[in-house]
């Protein structure tokens, strides 16, 4: 085998070896997460305005413990430490915003640890959890400290007619309706982040606009609310109107930030409609017939459990396979 002298020696190159495609969209997990955190800023601002700046400690505690739990578990499991991707911080933040003002800091910390530990890491970490971690933490707290978590603070700028109870509780136990306007602004009793519908909407619409949140879930939830809430209202006008349902409690917060969590919502477009409508139905039933005034958390958790099934049965038909699929 003689060497071919005429052929010049191989030129050295210093390049990346990867598979196609060689172009990528600019989104990354951490960018998405931090963007959602940014979208929560109006809600945080509303919370601090209405309930006092000291509420920031609840938020800080929740975030610190969430990130801390994430890191410790990753250290124990000898996995890559990913606190900077923002997902744990986001979970902590979301949890904090669902808590009532002046909630005890130690309980907040417990909630954060549970949210990350039982809600997320036990399933294998980011991307594998079945249930929304923040809601797992919140549901855990609700079950563990039911009294404390339903003790509300009267907002700072409250007019006299506003009580410290949430609009939903006021309706449920005393049949008092709250006007839409204070509920939209947030000048009513409620959890930190969810009281101001406007602040929530600003963040949510931002997320929809940049394409992080798929519009189908919030829209189907709102439509579902008009459908089911309206149905119950028409049957019995004693029941609240759909508008009240939408603006009261954490419905909008849930629709924009909780139900739309990528990991725990369906991945198919059809599935998102089923998911959103399902949440609304369960929510209306809980609010009207259940023992608790609010049920957004439960209805989302409940539907989270159905997501694998929804994904399975709304699987898109493979291109060109229409006839074959149906025959089977």
């Amino acid at each position: 085998m003689e060497t071919t002298t005429t052929i010049e020696p191989k030129q050295k190159v210093y390049f990346d070896l990867t598979t196609s495609p060689h172009l990528h969209s600019k989104w990354t997990t951490s960018k998405v997460m931090w963007f959602v955190v940014a979208a929560l800023v109006p809600s945080i601002a509303a919370a601090l305005t209405f309930f006092g700046w000291t509420q920031i400690f609840i938020i800080i505690t929740a975030v610190v413990f969430a990130v801390g739990t994430e890191v410790s578990i990753q250290v124990i499991r000898k996995k890559q430490i990913t606190w900077f991707d923002g997902s744990a911080a986001l979970t902590g933040l979301l949890l904090a915003l669902t808590l009532p003002p002046n909630f005890s800091l130690s309980a907040t910390a417990i909630g954060s640890v549970v949210a990350i530990g039982l809600g997320k890491q036990i399933f294998g970490g980011l991307g594998y959890n079945i249930f929304n971690p923040a809601l797992v933490g919140r549901a855990f707290l609700q079950a563990a400290f039911p009294v404390q978590i339903t003790t509300w603070l009267k907002p700072n700028f409250a007019v006299d007619s506003v009580t410290s109870a949430t609009p939903l509780a006021a309706f449920k136990f005393d049949k008092i309706f709250t006007d839409t306007v204070p509920m939209a602004i947030g000048n009513v009793g409620g959890s930190l982040g969810e009281t101001s519908a406007i602040a929530v909407l600003i963040g949510g619409i931002l997320l929809i606009a940049v394409g992080i949140v798929n519009w189908r879930i919030p829209l189907s939830m709102i439509l579902g609310m008009f459908l089911f809430g309206g149905m119950f209202w028409l049957i019995n006008p004693q029941n609240p109107t759909p508008i009240f349902h939408i603006f009261a409690g954490s419905f909008l917060f849930g629709a924009m930030f909780m139900a739309t969590d990528w990991v725990t919502s369906p991945i198919t477009n059809k599935g998102m409609w089923v998911f959103g409508l399902g949440i609304s139905l369960v929510l209306v039933v809980i609010r009207i017939y259940g023992g608790l005034p609010e049920g957004v958390m439960y209805s989302i958790l409940f539907m989270n459990g159905f997501v694998p099934l929804i994904n399975r049965y709304t699987r898109p038909t493979i291109f060109g396979a229409v006839k074959e699929e149906k025959k089977k």
């Binding site: 050295k12 210093y14 990346d16 070896l17």
Partner: peptide, 23 residues
Amino acid sequence: KKEGIEYLGPQSCAVKTIVAGGD
């Protein structure tokens, strides 16, 4: 090793083989 390249991607052998036969 293949000179002057950096293989970026999953470290699994089965997958490496697909990308130009690994590094």
